[in-house]
Structures are given as C-alpha cells and as structure tokens.
Design a protein around this nucleic acid. Structure first.
Length: 901
RNA sequence: GCCCGCGUGGUGGAAUGGUAGACACAGGGGACUUAAAAUCCCUAGGCUUUGAUGCCGUGCCGGUUCGAGUCCGGCCGCGGGUACCA
C-alpha cells in the first residue's frame, strides 16, 4: 500500500512524524529490526528481575503454519510481552517437535528423505513465523531431530536405564500381515491396514517401557498441588491414572490342564463375587496360549480374537466374542459351584492379570456376553426401593449409592458399593481368599517404535552379553542417511552397516537396537532443554535452577493426558538422575489450554473407494436454498468456462449448483480439528501479507474466548485492520490540536484508568477477547472526547501500551510518533490510579419478582433503607404493586433491588 | 463403550448467582463526495403495538433460590482424549 499516491504534496504531519496512513508493510519490518538490534528478546540470567518462563507447546513441522499456530503463539506472545512490561526477565523460546510419522509418509508418497522434508518444512515455518513479530528468543531454537538434541535424549535414556526407570517386556502392536509391518493406531481403519486393507492382527513384540507406573500414586496426589491448572485437566489425569482398590485372588482350575492349577484374577467389585457366572481370560493369557498348542479350535478362535486394532475404543466397541474352553474353575466360597472358563477378545493381557470373573448382573459388558452365550445372570444387590429386572438389563449404580444386598459377602445388608467392596476385601483376606490390592489403571509407557524417523534407542544386543547400553562417549547414535522407503517396514532393520556393530562390552559382533523412541519422549523434556539448549549434557543445572519452572504453559486440550502426564513423569525421572532440581518435579506452574481452530473437512471418494481430502481453497462453496453445498474448484472453473458463466451470482450458476451439474460434489464434514492429514488447515499467510501481522494478531485474539474452539472464518480480518488504522489515525492527527473543554480531561482520564484496570485484569486472566472489547470502547471514547491535547496524548500513549502485547508494531509506531521514550516493548506497564476509579453514584436496576422494571441512580454509599424507599417510590414499582404491600424487598448494595410481591 | 468439555441474536461472542445480548462482523438507513473509495452518524433478539406498555427468550425437561446463561438432577446434540497422530 502506497500512501498519498494521489496527492503529491506531503503535509507537515508526514514530514514530521511519519506517514499519515497506516501501512503495516512499512511499520512491521522496521520495528522487528529495532527489536532485533536491541536484543530485547534475548534471554539471559540476571539477578535484578524476577524471571518468567512462557512456553507454548512447540509445533510439529507439518509444512506451513496454520491459523491455529498463529492463535496459539499470539496468546503466548501477549503473556510474554505483558510480563516483560511488568518487570520480568522473560524466557520465551521456540522449537520444533520434528520426529514422527508424517515425514516417513511423505517420503513414501513422494520420495525424498524425511530429514530433508522436515528441515525444509522448519525453514518454511520459521520464515512464516518471523514476520508475526513474536517476542521469541530465536537463538535458543532447536528441532528434536537435531542430533545435538536427540543425542542428549539418548544420554537421558541411559541414565534412566541405570536407575531402573526403563525395562523391556512384551506388548501388543497392530500388525499388518500383508505389509509385514507395525501400524500406528491412526493407520488402522475399521480393523484394517490403511494401505494394504488387510485385517490387522494384534501381535506381541519385546519392547522398551518407562516405569511410569511406579509413580502412579505420586502423579495422582501431586495433582492437588497444581493450583493453576484447569480443573478439567486434573480430573482427566486423575481418571486416567485410575486408582482403585480391589481384590486379587485365584480360582482353582479343575484337573489342572497343562500344569495350570489356578487362574489369578483382579476385581474392583469383590462384593459381586456371588454373582459370578464365568471366568474370562485374554487370548494372550499363558493358559490360552498353552491350550492353543493342542487345540486347533482354540487356535482358530485366538487368531480371530487377535484381529482388529489395539485401541481401547476398538476393544470396547468390538463385538464381544467368547470361546468356551470346556475348562471349569471352583468358586472360592462354594467348591461345588463350578464356573466355565472362556477366552474372550475384550480382555487384554496388559490390564490387571489378564483374567477376570464375569458378573453379568452388574456389568454392561458381562451382561451382553452372558446373554450371548446363555450364561446365568445372578443379582447380588438390588435397589433399596423398587425392583430391577436383572435379566433384561444389568443393575449398575454408582459405588457411592446405597443398595440392598441379596447375596451378601460381608457388611450390612443395605450399604453403599464402596462400603461393600471394603467389607468384602476384609472378609476375603480373613478367609484366605486373595488379598486387597490397590491398582492403577495407568500402564507403563511403551516407548519402542518400529520406525526410522525417531530417536534411536542407544543399546546393542549381544549374544554373549545381552542388552548392552551404548557408551555415552559414542553418543549420539545417529540415524543413517542412506535409507529408502520403497518397501514397508523399518529401514533401520535392513541396514546392515548401521545395524551390525561390535558389542560395546565384549567387542564381538552384535546388533544395534533398531527401534526408535516414541515422539512423546522428545516432547517430554524439551522445556528443560530450552533453559540451556546448547549444553553438552541434557541440562545445565545452573540454568535449569534459574529458569525452571515454566511459569505459564500454553497448549491444546488434546494434550491434557498423555503429553502432560509424560512430562510430569519425565521431570521426576530427570530429577532422580540429577538433571533437574527437586523444585522442578512439577515442571509447569500454570497451564492454559487454548481451544482449537476448527474447520470443515472437504471430502470426496477416490477411485479406490478411500476418502480423499481437499484443501479449502480447492473447493467452491455455494448456498442453495439455505443449504451449503461444495464442489471441486477445478471442475467448477471448467464448467464456468465451457458454459460462459462468469460469476457465481449468475442464475445459471445457482441452477447448476442446485442440480449438482458443475462437477464432483464434495461432502462437507463440519467443525473438525485442523489436521494435516485431513487437509482442512487454513493458511494465515494471505491475511498477514494483505493486512500485516498486527491485524492477524489482533484478529485471532478478538471475538472468541481463548479456551474455546473456534470455527475458522476470515470475515473479521478486514474489520480488525480498519480498527488498527483508526487507532493509528487518532495518534497521527493528534498534533492538529484541539481546544480543552472543562471536565473533558478528567472524564477521559477516568476512562483511561478504568481501561488500564480492565485490560490488565483481562490479560492476567487470559480474557484477551474481553480486553480487546474494552480497547475498542476506549478507542471510541478517545475519538469522541473533547479533552485537550495533553490529556489525549496521554490517553493514546496508554492505549498504545495496552495494545502493545497484541499489536506491538503499531504500538511502537504510535509511541514514537507521540514522543515516547525508548521502545514501548521495554516501557513499564501503565498503572491504574485507584482514586480515579471511584464512582460517586451507581445505577441500580429494580426488579419486581425477579423481572427488571426500572432503575434508579443513587449515591454509592446510600443505606439500604433509603434505597428501598426510593425503589418503592418509582413509577414502575407503584404500577406493579397497584396499592398492595410488597412481601419482601431485597437490596443488594451497589447491585440490585428486588421487590417480591 | 468409557473419561473430559461445550451449547446464548443472522454470525463471533459479553455477563464475581443480580439490568441477558457488552464489543465486533454481516445487514438496514443516513451524512460527506460530481462519483467511487475512505471516513463518520443512526438502527438492530423474537412476537405484539402507531408508540409506550406487554409477552417470549441463553439446546431440551425438571429442581434449588427473592433472583439461574451461571448452581443441582436427567436428557439431546457437538467436540477432545481413549495409551503407536502429534
């Protein structure tokens, strides 16, 4: 945008203070350069200010930034800049969570190397982020795929191994029998591999695990100390950890087949033991595996039961299948009572003991199973009042509810489930039937991934020495570059020169571990690495002690459980190994979960029957009869050309849309999380290049509360830009001077102090949209004010300061125009003068029976009786009372009057 | 399936249990201009009415309260997570 192209004569204002029209393109690079030269965002330890560490969850380098990134990082930037203005030494770093599957998928789909794809994406995204003017210390940037980073991660792994925090055991994975490869959960669609279409099997592999379960109790109880975390996140984590008290005991097997004389089970409902009707074991249970060897039927069933994905959702939703082994166990309280043993597909070896007893009367799943296989359904308790048809549906009240026991094990006949469970555990222990056990739902964290693009696990397998840790001086164990992705599977596995190495212990030929680490490992300690990103140990304790904890962490709610729980575990583990101070065991002091930016997904069906996803810009939307329809843009353009239709307003176009004659219709899936794989990401670059960074920043913060999801629409960007131009103009035109009017100055300054207070509160509480609304209001006040130049100058300078966390470039420009000292970025935050906030009178709404009927203006400190008298005297109340006496009058001072009739 | 959220005008949304709809977008009307752009002003939940008054109204049903968008119970819808997407 070129200012004043038409009028060649620059006015005095232009010569003196810059341009008279707002031009982001000219302002923004100028101030970014100024900040850069002054090094204002470079973080260093200092004793003279309190430190403040702001961190937004770092991005995956998917290719280009999307509007969700802009929203997320702008929020963090507002906090960082605000804290800087309030006298803090701020650390605000940025990096990339750069390992993961999309890079390998890209290599498979388009050739090339995951490394090149990833670093090129990072370059692009950094280039897109820099013009946004974030207050980031770019000197600290790293990507988790940098050997310097993952080498230190390998060092951490070795330390964890030494401390017994890592171990190996078997665990199931999704196995694609056609591609002969392990699939991620998202690569399993309806139980089939996404590329091969083959039925997925669950297969056991030996894998590495972090012993997070040792910390279950601590991770649970420490949630109470996280006062500045959202309650919902703490609830989700508490439920996920899932502490429960139950009974572990054994059923004795009749005839002890294959040497198994008992089946160990765990139950959280021992009070329902008298309602048992079967015992279920996992297809991976040792007993099932032994039976499988001698029985083709069992083998066939187990094969079928192992089909399908490994997710909890898939298991829960899958049709419940059982196989009667013909084996029987004895009921512990009645040795004559025999229960059948079933192998069932919904029992996972990972949970509890891999075996359960089924109580169909009080469990949905068991009920479904019993009904299907004709097993008895026995109640053990019923409602205290009324009846319940247990055959038709299970009776499953919450454990805190009182029920009446019909087959009581211990305790009172009428008691709550919780009481009954405790009584039953005590009774069983006394009678030698098992023992009470506290269990956690939380399982150990499997970190092995059978993939190339991840951090290599630094161990070597030696026939003589077993699993041998790599020597620290040999770290990093670097990924080899010469790999190809033309065949499915892990290229490390078929890379002999990388894989075959001498044993670090005995020197004989051995093999490297070819599994790499889960990418959650990468993101579980990056916050600590940012405190000393170039250290030649995982952290530098001096730096970590100074900068940790993260004072404000900002990220998506989708990370509420896994990432945030793993990070909490990692901080503890790092402390044990001396990489973090004790005080950093809970690494995030405050957490804010911002909402996601959602967008419709546009989907068509490809020739192979699989869904094809289209970018928003590839789709033409048309509104026909109030219904939105979508078509592929290339089709539409061809059609328009061939029909000679030039505009979408043409009736011919509308008619053709109604009949879907303009090409492939696109299915619109509304409001979904922006996801690279669904192509529903919105590119903010256009908004930035058209209106500038400040407009984009202002725009993503206004109108919607930060914690809520927003459906993306660009309809407000122009308005945001107009507003910023208006603020700019207010400042630029101020020098013209205006006459003072008595009282106007004070009125404006009172409004200014109120705005300072409101905006400060808004920023402190993440109410950015509300703060922006106040700033709109204050801008209007200034524009209409008759105050003199001095007061107005002060008001506009304050406005610029209050806006500076959101629109830093514009604010700097105004600050400079109005003669502010130094950079606004380094200027102290304005303080509200309390004496200017006091109001003498207050407007009280008057309600009659809770409905507003009028209002009165009264002095702020008028006593209740007086207020009541005035309120009753108002026309509205008199009319409503119609001569009657009110029953009651409620006066809430400074708030409201309610007359009850 | 299970766990956690969310639901307010045409739209985004505001509202410590106390005037529902602040602020903004789109809309309608007007001023300025030869014209346009830019800018400024007015208007705006629904129904009813000339207008005032009035009635209805925060997903649905019920409850607590002088008073409920807000608290409680039950539904419906949508979103997130569900341990190998990150």
């Amino acid at each position: 945008m070129v200012a004043r192209r038409i009028s060649p004569t620059p006015n005095a204002l232009q010569e003196g203070t810059g341009m008279s029209r707002y031009s982001a393109a000219e302002i923004e690079p100028k101030w970014q350069k100024a900040w850069d030269e002054a090094g204002v965002f470079h973080a260093e330890r200092t004793a003279d200010k309190p430190k403040y560490y702001v961190l937004e969850m770092f991005p995956y380098p998917s290719g280009r930034i999307h509007i969700g990134h802009v929203r997320n990082y702008t929020m963090g930037d507002v906090v960082a800049r605000y804290k800087m203005a309030t006298g803090h030494n701020v650390l605000h770093p940025m990096g990339f969570d750069a390992f993961g599957m999309p890079a390998e998928n890209a290599a498979m789909a388009n050739g090339g190397h995951p490394k090149d794809w990833t670093y090129s994406n990072i370059d692009t995204m950094v280039a897109q982020m820099k013009p946004l003017g974030f207050s980031l210390d770019w000197t600290r940037m790293f990507a988790t795929c940098d050997p310097e980073y993952y080498g230190q991660q390998q060092a951490l792994f070795l330390d964890f191994l030494e401390k017994g925090l890592v171990y190996r055991k078997n665990a199931v994975v999704n196995w694609d029998p056609v591609d002969m490869t392990v699939l991620a959960n998202e690569q399993v669609e309806d139980g089939r591999g996404w590329r091969s279409g083959a039925l997925v099997e669950r297969r056991e592999l030996t894998q590495w695990f972090f012993k997070i379960s040792d910390y279950s109790d601590e991770l649970l109880s420490a949630l109470d100390t996280l006062d500045n975390w959202p309650a919902k996140v703490k609830t989700m984590q508490a439920n996920w950890i899932g502490k429960s008290r139950g009974l572990q005991f054994a059923f004795s097997l009749i005839d002890a087949p294959h040497g198994h004389d008992r089946v160990e089970v765990y139950t959280t409902r021992p009070d329902t033991l008298m309602g048992a009707s079967f015992v279920g074991i996992s297809p991976d249970h040792p007993l099932a595996k032994d039976l499988e060897k001698s029985s083709p039927e069992v083998a066939a069933f187990c094969e079928k039961a192992r089909q399908g994905g490994t997710t909890e959702e898939a298991l829960e939703k899958a049709e419940k299948l059982g196989f009667d082994t013909g084996l029987k166990v004895r009921h512990p309280f009645d040795t004559a009572w025999e229960l059948p043993v079933y192998i069932a597909n919904f029992i996972l070896m990972d949970y509890g003991t891999g075996a359960i007893f089924g109580c169909p009367g009080h469990d949905e799943r068991d009920h479904e199973f019993a009904t299907k296989y004709g097993l008895p359904i026995i109640d053990t308790f019923l409602p205290t009042e009324g009846d319940h048809d247990i055959q038709a549906a299970p009776f499953v009240p919450t454990k805190s509810e009182k029920v009446r026991y019909t087959r009581l094990i211990a305790g009172d006949e009428v008691q709550t489930g919780d009481e009954a469970v405790n009584a039953a555990v005590d009774f069983c222990e006394k009678n030698g039937v098992g023992h009470g056990v506290t269990k956690f739902r939380l399982r150990d964290w499997g970190l092995s991934r059978q993939r190339y693009w991840g951090c290599p696990i630094p161990v070597v397998h030696c026939d003589a020495c077993g699993v041998v840790p790599e020597k620290k001086e040999n770290l990093p164990v670097q990924l080899p570059d010469d790999v190809s992705f033309d065949i499915p599977g892990n290229p490390l596995d078929r890379h002999p020169t990388w894989r075959d190495v001498p044993c670090p212990s005995c020197g004989k030929p051995a093999r490297r571990e070819t599994d790499t680490m889960d990418t959650f490992v990468d993101s579980s300690w990056y916050f600590a690495r940012f405190t000393a990103p170039r250290a030649d140990t995982p952290t530098d304790l001096t730096e970590a002690e100074y900068w940790m904890n993260v004072d404000q962490y900002i990220g998506g709610i989708e990370h509420a459980i896994l990432h945030l729980l793993y990070s909490r575990f990692f901080a503890r583990a790092m402390h044990i190994c001396g990489h973090l101070p004790e005080t950093a065991k809970e690494p995030f002091d405050a957490l804010f979960t911002q909402g996601m930016v959602t967008h419709a997904i546009y989907q068509t069906t490809g020739t192979d029957g699989r869904p094809v996803y289209h970018y928003p810009e590839e789709v033409v939307l048309a509104n026909v009869g109030g219904k939105q329809r979508a078509f592929l843009r290339e089709n539409v353009e061809l059609w328009m050309k061939s029909e000679g239709v030039s505009s979408e307003d043409d009736p011919l176009f509308t008619a053709a849309v109604a009949e879907a004659l303009i090409g492939t219709e696109v299915t619109i899936i509304p409001s979904a999380k922006m996801s690279k794989s669904k192509n529903n990401v919105v590119d903010p670059v256009q908004i930035i290049s058209q209106y500038g960074a400040d407009t984009a920043r202002w725009f993503v913060l206004s109108d919607s509360p930060p914690e809520r999801d927003v459906e993306w629409t660009a309809s407000g960007a122009e308005a945001a830009s107009k507003h910023l131009a208006r603020v700019y103009r207010l400042a630029a035109e101020l020098t013209d001077g205006e006459a003072d009017t008595a009282g106007s100055d004070e009125q404006l300054l009172r409004e200014m102090h109120k705005t300072i207070k409101d905006v400060t509160l808004g920023i402190d509480s993440f109410g950015f949209n509300a703060a922006i609304a106040k700033l709109y209001g204050f801008t209007n006040t200034i524009a209409k004010s008759k105050a003199g130049v001095v007061a107005k100058r002060m008001a506009i300078k304050t406005l610029a300061q209050l806006m500076s966390p959101m629109t830093p470039h514009l604010s700097e420009e105004i600050w400079q125009t109005l003669g502010g000292e130094g950079l606004i970025t380094e200027a102290p935050w304005p303080q509200a003068d309390e004496s200017m906030l006091i109001e003498d009178t207050v407007t009280l709404p008057i309600q009659v029976n809770g409905k507003r009927r009028g209002e009165i203006d009264v002095p702020k400190d008028m006593d209740k009786a007086e207020v009541e008298k005035l309120a009753l005297a108002t026309d509205a109340v008199q009319r409503a009372l119609d001569g009657a006496q009110p029953k009651k009058v409620i006066v809430v001072p400074g708030r409201i009057v309610n007359v009850v009739m």
